[in-house]
């Protein structure tokens, strides 16, 4: 836990430095080619960009710790130019997007994890048969093709040739859950194709790795069926590596889905992130990065805890 927090702190420094190393800043970009140095300096002063990197970092970190993610540069300007009051905070901007991303990740996980683990178990059970090879080839080719390609193939078959699902996932607030789910299905299926291979292959490998163990031989010599041997005797001992791979893939679902979001016009955090980088909206970029890092760390921490819980030696000490 302490280690996780320390990692997060180090990551926050790396993020802050890296983001500030980006060439050009918001002031220059927003004012364009004909900007006068005075105007650029004025905006920088307004945004606090004229202060030193260190003081900006601590200001930002302090805000983070108190739950204040800062204000978005872009929204701030828009609002003040239009005469509106205050502006939009980063938190307000990210929150709905993040919720959408979590929704997509959850739907994908609910589809992908059971499929991957079941396929892995079956591949281990029927190892070196046609089924095993077919499962391997299919999942491997789906992981090897670019995501956008898989996305367009699915759109072609499930939205264009057979219009079962909508190809655009423009979900918005206040939408009925069923509509939302329907619109999310196609990107979720695309992501399922991407993450299944890794989890399935790890499940298969972790189980097969154990099949030479004396206790597996013992289970066979007790006359247990092959399926029971694998599910009851091998799987419980293979959980730790499987859990870790699942955690890594879930983290990917939160942090690495930009391409899929763009293809389906899904309003997730990935798109917001890319847009913010384009206009150097630094508070948003930093907050997104930190959320991604936190997601990784949190999921891996959870995986470690679950791995420990899956080990009877640690659960029931002598």
């Amino acid at each position: 836990m302490a280690l996780g927090l320390l990692t997060l702190l180090i990551v926050s420094i790396v993020i802050f430095v890296a983001v500030n190393l980006l060439p050009g800043d918001f002031a220059e970009l927003i004012l364009g080619q004909g900007a006068t140095p005075e105007a650029v300096a004025k905006i920088r002063e307004d945004l606090g960009l004229d202060q030193s990197l260190v003081s900006r970092y601590f200001g930002w970190l302090g805000g983070m710790l108190t739950g204040d993610l800062g204000s978005s540069f872009a929204q701030l300007n828009f609002q003040t130019n239009l005469g509106g009051a205050g502006g939009v905070t980063v938190a307000e901007q990210i929150a709905p997007r993040f919720a959408n991303t979590m929704f997509l990740a959850t739907v994908t996980a609910i589809i992908a994890v059971p499929i991957a683990v079941t396929l892995g178990i079956l591949a281990a059970l029927y190892r070196n048969t046609v089924f095993d090879r077919a499962a391997n080839i299919l999942t491997l080719s789906s992981i090897s093709s670019p995501e956008f390609f898989m996305a367009y193939v699915l759109i072609l078959f499930l939205a264009v040739l057979n219009p079962i699902l909508p190809s655009l996932s423009n979900i918005y607030e206040g939408m009925a859950f069923s509509d939302r789910l329907e619109k999310t299905l196609l990107p979720a299926l695309t992501l399922t194709l991407v993450v299944t291979a890794h989890m399935m292959r790890m499940t298969r490998a972790a189980i097969i790795n154990l099949l030479a163990s004396p206790y597996i031989e013992m289970a066979r010599l007790k006359g247990m069926s092959p399926l029971r041997v694998i599910v009851k005797h091998a799987l419980p001992n293979a959980l730790a590596p499987i859990i870790n791979v699942i955690a890594l893939n879930l983290a990917y679902l939160i942090t690495g889905v930009v391409v899929v979001e763009v293809v389906f016009v899904y309003p997730g955090i990935g798109q917001l992130f890319v847009d913010s980088v384009k206009i150097r909206d630094i508070p948003v970029v930093q907050a997104c990065c930190l959320i991604f890092a936190a997601a990784y760390i949190l999921l891996n921490l959870t995986a470690d805890i679950l791995s420990i819980l899956s080990n009877p030696r640690l659960r029931h000490p002598k």
Binding site: S213, P214, Y215, E217, A219, H233, P236, N237, P312
Partner: peptide, 8 residues
């Protein structure tokens, strides 16, 4: 020790 399943 090796032939009993450690998980059960």
């Amino acid at each position: 020790a090796a032939s009993f399943n450690p998980a059960h």
